[in-house]
Amino acid sequence: MPLLEIKDLHVALDDGAEIVKGIDLTVESGEVHAIMGPNGSGKSTLAHALMGHPAYTITSGEVLLDGSSLLKLAPDERAQKGLFLAFQYPYAIPGVTVTSFLRSAMNALRKARTGGEDDPIPIPEFRKELAAATEKLKVPRELLGRYLNDGFSGGEKKRIEILQLALLRPRLAVLDETDSGLDIDALKTIAGGVSDLVGPEMSAIVITHYQRILNYIRPDFVHVFAGGRFVAEGGPELAEQLESEGYDAYLPEASNGAR
């Protein structure tokens, strides 16, 4: 059974505007899929809809994780089933430190795993895991005591997203433009960190505009997303082709250079 199956998915906004116009995607365990597309193509909408954002309505289609539908589940239940979204623009939670947030999130997932019984992670174990992950991802220790994303730079936010990913250990990570706003060194560390997590335990969907993140997280499949649909699919070579030729070939005539 595939880890994730998306079948003919259509997603619309509250006002009825259809953003995702029927996509199919199958992700097996251990695979990395890249979804590449120009700005405004609906990539982030797809990512948010998978996670269950209330502002997006699934008008038709199906999303199955391990063969069972996600669509009726709230975002926390999706997370408890092993889905993770690394946000392009993470939100700030003033007054809640990164450390305390991480522990709460880990405990929420542990609680779900035991079927609703509290099973908090012992503090020494938490400290150890946190120390290992922060070192690997080169997260400045000072960030851990600060309020989550409150006044963080773009790069700091991205590091903290991936730190969450490393500690929460989802089975499917969706990275929404994690590379945007990162300098090359940061990209290398962060993407390298994600790449190390990919394997039988975790698959990934990497959503990006540019090819460069894919140098560090090698995709097995590349899907070109434009106008709400996959317009081309292939292997890693497709990403390189996009990098040199751009998206023009995939954009509808009408919008070509119109704005």
């Binding site: 926390d76 979204l85 939670i93």
Partner: peptide, 12 residues
């Protein structure tokens, strides 16, 4: 904010 926290497994 709620969506962000819930996406990490916290209930509403």
């Amino acid at each position: 904010q709620l969506f962000y926290l819930m996406s990490r497994g916290l209930s509403e």
